[in-house]
Design a protein around this nucleic acid. Structure first.
Length: 254
DNA sequence: ATGGCTTATTGTATAAGA
């Protein structure tokens, strides 16, 4: 079983890239973030013709998450239960006996911003919810844009990023708390090239110079860890015309 | 180098991303 996650930075703009990528890789599941569209505009039909059922929750301009699947989706959850949030950042479904959670964790903007406070509250709510979710669904995966580079090796220039959002100690601690729930960073279960990143700034030729960050992740529960066969970042879509600033990561399960 | 892109908006400048 192949599962992937990709922040597309507007599905309206990126749908051709997504359809090409689905055709080339045929994943069982693809989680999308930043669809940036209301559900009425979501391309259910085009995805169906490509062989994928989809569930989506979105809003105009910002946020929006979707799960595309070649297998039936059930038990759909929209957003974090009991957490008052007007931003559409989480969607979850049962697929082939696995609880698949697609999340777009807030960026935080800057450490002294209200948005950073929101990010930290949001991470706490996510953690609390996952605690109970893991009891109900031992086979669980959390895929998405975390907006956290967990370690210095996940940042192209750690010294330049000290004190910045994405790498601050409280954010990294929140990431570690997710791991302490019994989740594993599937990318690090395997040997990986140095300077592996999933996002590069559009500016300053970030991609060409590999000035990137690894901020998109696929965490898997204890019960799923032994089934992991491979994990890789696919840099190809980042090289296309008018790319998303993020590129997909792909996990293969036995 | 606090942005040099890119996206969307009842736009023609602004907000946000990371």
């Amino acid at each position: 079983m192949k599962l992937a996650t990709w922040n597309v930075n507007s599905l309206n703009v990126r749908l051709p890239h997504v359809l090409d990528w689905l055709r080339d890789h045929q994943p069982d599941v693809l989680c999308l973030q930043e669809t940036k569209q209301e559900d009425a505009k979501f391309p259910y039909q085009a995805l169906k013709e490509a062989g994928y059922e989809a569930v989506h929750i979105g809003q105009k301009t910002y946020n929006g998450v979707a799960i595309l699947s070649r297998h039936p989706l059930s038990n759909i959850q929209y957003n974090i239960p009991n957490f008052d949030d007007d931003q559409q950042r989480v969607i979850a479904a049962d697929i082939n006996g696995i609880r698949v959670i697609c999340a777009y964790i807030p960026n935080g903007q800057a450490l002294d911003s209200d948005k950073y406070q929101y990010k930290m509250r949001w991470l706490n709510a996510l953690s609390d919810w996952l605690k109970t979710e893991l009891v109900a669904h031992p086979k669980l995966m959390l895929l998405g844009d975390y907006n956290i580079a967990p370690e210095d090796r996940d940042c192209h220039d750690p010294a330049a990023w000290i004190g910045q959002v994405l790498v601050s100690p409280p954010e990294r601690e929140a990431f570690q708390r997710l791991l302490q729930l019994g989740l594993h960073d599937s990318f690090r279960l395997f040997e990986q090239p140095e300077k592996s990143f999933t996002w590069w700034d559009y500016r300053m030729m970030g991609f060409r110079r590999n000035f990137g960050m690894r901020i998109d992740h696929i965490l898997v529960s204890d019960a799923l860890k032994p089934a992991c066969i491979s994990a890789q970042i696919d840099k190809v879509p980042r090289k296309l015309e008018r790319p998303s600033d993020h590129t997909p990561i792909l996990l293969t399960l036995a």
